[in-house]
Nucleic acid binder design. Structure first.
Length: 874
DNA sequence: GTGCTGGAAGAACAA
DNA sequence: AGTTGTTCTTCCAGC
């Protein structure tokens, strides 16, 4: 077997792959959403043109618009790897979507099925809400601002949501309600109580779906379905609006939900029992229908409430900076608006654009024990030191309040996307000063928090907890490719959508540092929060300070270099200064690199190990060539917001961050457009780029706004970009993805760790997406049509040290991806067997130990995804 | 009584 | 197939 370490690395390769679009230019057009443009068109064009291939690659999910999801599943879901390509034409099904809500619902219900999707979202939502959530429901209903509703469509309100939500919601509902075996059925689902499902040892009772929960867990029983219903209702509501106005996106979504989730599909992917459940009279349905508070909310939402994005009533907020909005915070009604398609939650968005920059001023703690539906809330996520995370939007000078969205995203090496096993959980109470409310977007619970000018567009996130959904529930969902076991890291993802005068909407996103949500991990696994150095000459010898948690006297620091094929190229233990070792800090001596003659930066990883299965996540480290100027060798600078650092946020880039960086290497995409880098403009307060995923999605197909050349002028920002900046242009489409699919891998392929984002690679790449060189380097070997899967590494990449800064075509291997999830343990899941999808393997053809060159061949496998999840279905 | 926590038992998995 | 160590979920208890 592989050693734990090996396993851990194994996924590295995946990383690259997973990141379809490398780019990440923050300034990419995609952030701009032309409201006017028809969503459908935009979306379609975007996806097809730019992202069409993604599906094939399995990555597709990430970029697919909800409507395009192959599965019909909400875009969110798909982020994972899905091989199936669906040729759906929204238009075709548009009519269906138009069907009256009721009808749709019915349909959905009828379809029942088992949409895999259903499992996730619905369950998530409902469950979450249901339980802990009471929060969701109760809150929603109880708290003015708290109720969950779907946005109508005012752009500001969260137009996109409706589309996404509705569809999903519907589907989800269906699934949930129907039976889906929604995760939430927790009660039933719980192994103990449930009946066996799908051969899994655990029993999953789908009956009742989420709602069924009511009965199951004692605790829950206490707080029965009603809560669950809310969510559903919310969903319904969502639909309602759509019904009236079918936005393109909504339609698409609906279509997806209906068509995709259609019985046929579902049936296949879902365990019989699950299906059966669906069929059973679902409480869920009733719930939906229930007029309960939820419904009311829904109605209100539609009729009375305005999306959060709508102008807030300042009066309500008195606040001073960070002051908590006055309680009852009223959410303005949404303006009637046809939602343009806003970016799906799995879309990668920049953290800054033009004058705007969304930053996490105070990062959340690295550990937060999530609560199950069967448990009570475990409180809001706290900050590293004290208090809670703080998010601020810079560059926004308008007087109109905005809405900050928060959802729980993944923290693996792949593109940021909603986490299938975790949902944000709204926290209310005396200790919560920030108003918030929940909405469902594509089956993902999204917390909306007001961003008020009075508070300098700064928000204290003390209202967000994290709900854990049962792995079995989620994994049973059709289309779900991720496994929950050991997939316990998440990131808080914040988004803000800024309407421009020209009708476009600028969407920004920033993700927090990874948060370990399991009980055990938080207690035992070592965690590196900061490292005093990100790079150093190959000679090593320098002392590096590591700060974090759970460092023990016997802790070891291991540096590892892995090839793209996952093999260990080099591994060595660094010397730890035992005398200075503390639970939260330690000093290690950077070991000399195996090859002192490297000509280009070499990306490696290191981790702290407290024993078998107790390893920290990988941290990136770059060995520099003595001959190479240390320019930009340090990735951190590139993607780590100075501001953050200043704030006390750990400067060390975590492995994840690195990943992000990879995705979004260029912090200053704007430069291309003549815009000063956001950082510069901001004065270094830029959020971790890592968080922000670079991949931008331009909803407006034809126009690609780019970074405005104008200085921070907002107007400029709003303006469309030059064609040149079209996403394609900006992104290295070719890189690996023939079809417009942009692999995230901007990193040096060579680096063993290429799989993991390598700082080294980043440094050079920053901003680079647009960088001609970059582009050139990546210009892909032309993809062969049809062979999406086959990506070839650009020649350039091939040459030079594996670590060559330029390139990496990283292909992700599924298994490896999984590994990422397990960074802590270092034990990779069993990938292959378990997962399916497309495997992309980079195989080093030629390796010059001298560190010179490594040729890689990309090998792609498409494995049929087995409907069964390894873990549970076994 | 409601939340929020920490801890831990026992089932489910994995090696 | 049995054993052992992990991880996941659910429960409990205390504040």
């Amino acid at each position: 077997m592989k050693s734990a370490e090996e396993d851990a690395f194994s996924y590295a390769p995946n990383v690259s792959m997973s990141l379809p679009f490398s780019m990440g230019n923050p300034c990419l057009p995609s952030q701009y959403h032309g409201l006017p443009s028809s969503p459908i068109i935009s979306v379609t064009s975007c996806h097809q043109a730019a992202y069409g291939m993604l599906e094939d690659t399995g990555v597709s999910g990430y970029y697919l618009s909800p409507g395009h999801r192959p599965n019909g599943a909400p875009a969110l879901e798909s982020p994972r790897i899905e091989i199936t390509a669906y040729s759906q034409f929204p238009e075709d099904e548009a009519e269906e979507s138009r069907a009256p809500m009721t009808k749709r619902l019915n349909s959905v219900v009828t379809l029942t099925l088992p949409s895999a999707d259903g499992y996730r979202d619905p369950s998530c939502l409902s469950p979450a809400s249901s339980l802990s959530s009471r929060s969701c429901h109760s809150e929603a209903s109880s708290y003015e601002s708290g109720f969950s509703y779907n946005y109508d469509n005012s752009p500001q309100n969260s137009p996109w949501q409706s589309p996404c939500v509705s569809p999903k919601g519907s589907s989800s509902l269906a699934s949930c309600t129907l039976g889906g075996g929604s995760p939430r059925h927790s009660p039933s689902g719980s192994p103990r109580a449930g009946s066996p499902c799908g051969g899994a040892k655990r029993k999953y009772s789908f009956s009742g779906g989420p709602y069924g929960q009511t009965s199951r867990s004692p605790r829950r029983s206490a707080t029965p379905s009603p809560q669950g219903s809310p969510l559903l209702s919310a969903t319904d509501d969502t639909w309602a609006p759509d019904t009236n106005q079918y936005t393109n996106s909504a339609i698409v979504a609906a279509i997806n939900a209906l068509s995709t989730d259609g019985v046929g599909d579902l049936a296949e992917g879902v365990p019989l029992k699950a299906r059966k459940t669906t069929l059973e009279p679902s409480p869920g349905v009733s719930l939906k229908v229930e007029p309960g508070g939820d419904d009311l909310n829904l109605e209100e939402t539609q009729d009375d409430f305005h999306g959060p994005r709508g102008p807030f009533k300042k009066e309500n907020y008195g606040g001073s900076f960070l002051d908590v909005p006055q309680y009852p915070y009223s959410w303005p009604k949404p303006k009637p608006y046809i939602s343009p398609s806003l970016p799906a939650l799995d879309w990668q968005l920049p953290s800054c654009s033009g004058p705007y920059s969304l930053q996490i001023e105070v990062q959340p703690k690295s550990h937060h024990r999530a609560h199950y539906e069967t448990e009570g809330s475990r409180g809001a996520v706290k900050a590293l030191s004290e208090g809670h995370p703080v998010v601020q939007l810079y560059g926004y000078m308008e007087s109109e309040p905005l809405t900050l969205q928060l959802f729980i995203g993944t923290a693996d090496d792949r593109l940021l996307r909603p986490h299938a096993f975790y949902q944000v959980h709204r926290i209310t109470g005396k200790t919560v000063s920030t108003a918030s409310h929940e909405v469902l977007q594509s089956n993902t619970k999204v917390l909306e928090i007001p961003l008020l000018p009075e508070n300098n567009m700064r928000a204290l996130i003390d209202c967000a907890g994290i709900l854990k959904l049962r792995n079995s529930d989620i994994e049973l969902r059709k289309g779900e490719t991720d496994i929950g076991r050991k997939n316990t890291r998440v990131r808080m993802v914040f988004r803000v959508h800024i309407n421009q005068a020209n009708g476009r909407t600028v969407s920004l996103q920033v993700a927090s540092n990874p948060i370990e949500c399991s009980q055990r991990s938080a207690q035992e696994l070592p965690l590196i929060e900061k490292q005093s150095a990100d790079s150093y000459p190959a000679t090593g010898g320098k002392k590096m300070l590591l700060t974090g948690h759970n460092f023990q006297p016997d802790s070891k620091v291991v540096f590892v270099e892995k090839g793209q094929d996952g093999h260990h190229l080099w591994e060595t233990e660094a010397k730890v200064d035992k005398d200075s070792l503390k639970p939260t800090s330690m000093v290690v001596e950077i070991p000399p690199y195996r090859n002192q003659r490297i000509s280009s930066p070499v990306q490696v990883n290191f981790y702290v190990c407290n024993g078998k299965r107790k390893r920290s996540q990988y941290q990136r480290f770059t060995y520099l060539s003595p001959n190479v100027p240390i320019i930009k060798t340090e990735p951190n600078d590139d993607y780590e917001p100075k501001g953050v650092t200043a704030l006390g946020v750990p400067s060390a880039k975590s492995y994840y961050e690195g990943l992000n960086a990879m995705v979004h290497p260029d912090p200053n995409p704007c430069l291309v457009g003549g815009y000063p880098p956001c950082q510069q403009r901001l004065g270094g307060g830029i959020p971790l780029s890592s968080s922000s995923n670079p991949t931008l999605h331009d909803l407006t197909p034809t126009t690609y706004p780019k970074c405005l050349q104008d200085p921070p002028g907002r107007a400029a920002v709003a303006q469309g970009g030059s064609p040149d900046h079209s996403p394609l242009a900006l992104l290295p489409p070719q890189v690996g993805s023939p079809h417009g699919y942009h692999p995230p891998s901007l990193f040096p392929a060579g680096s063993p760790s290429s799989s993991s984002p390598s700082p080294a690679s980043h440094p050079p790449t920053p901003g680079a997406t647009q960088d001609p060189q970059f582009t050139a380097a990546y210009s892909p070997p032309q993809p062969q049509p049809g062979s999406n899967l086959t990506r070839k590494t650009p020649p350039t990449l091939l040459s030079d040290d594996s670590t060559s800064p330029t390139l990496p075509i990283t292909v992700k291997q599924e298994p490896q991806d999984l590994d990422q999830m397990y960074l802590d343990d270092g034990e990779p899941p069993d990938p292959i067997s378990t997962f399916t999808h497309i495997q992309h393997t980079m195989i080093p053809q030629i390796t010059d130990t001298a560190g010179v060159r490594v040729m890689f061949i990309a090998r792609f496998f498409v494995t049929a995804k087995s409907p069964q999840k390894l873990n549970h279905n076994k």
